[in-house]
């Protein structure tokens, strides 16, 4: 019984940060100089994610301004995710 308790007492884990962002806007940094801002609809432990109202920024070394792409609903595969951060307004 005590073992059960200790496992419950385990401090929060990194994925909880993402869980708290459900239905909130986040920024996701991806491989290949890309970032996506969007409203988090869902995710799993691989960081596969579904974002709505998403705006993708593609950075190019030669251009100062990133290229942008809008999508209403997008699935992001977890293996290209580098980091996830809430958007502080």
């Amino acid at each position: 019984m005590s073992t059960v308790q200790t496992s419950h007492q385990q401090a929060e884990e990194p994925l909880d940060l993402i869980r708290y962002q459900l239905d909130e806007y986040i920024i996701v940094k991806l491989r290949g100089s890309r970032e996506i801002k969007g409203k988090l609809q869902g995710f799993d432990s691989h960081c596969n994610m579904v974002l709505s109202d998403a705006l993708e920024y593609i950075y190019n070394e030669n251009d100062d301004e990133p290229m942008t792409k809008k999508s209403e609903m997008v699935f992001v595969r977890g293996d290209s995710v580098i980091l996830i951060s809430p958007i502080i307004e």
Binding site: P14, L83, I84
Partner: peptide, 11 residues
């Protein structure tokens, strides 16, 4: 400064 972040393990 970027605040609170989650870093995926493989990186």
């Amino acid at each position: 400064l970027i605040g609170e972040i989650f870093i995926r393990c493989n990186n």
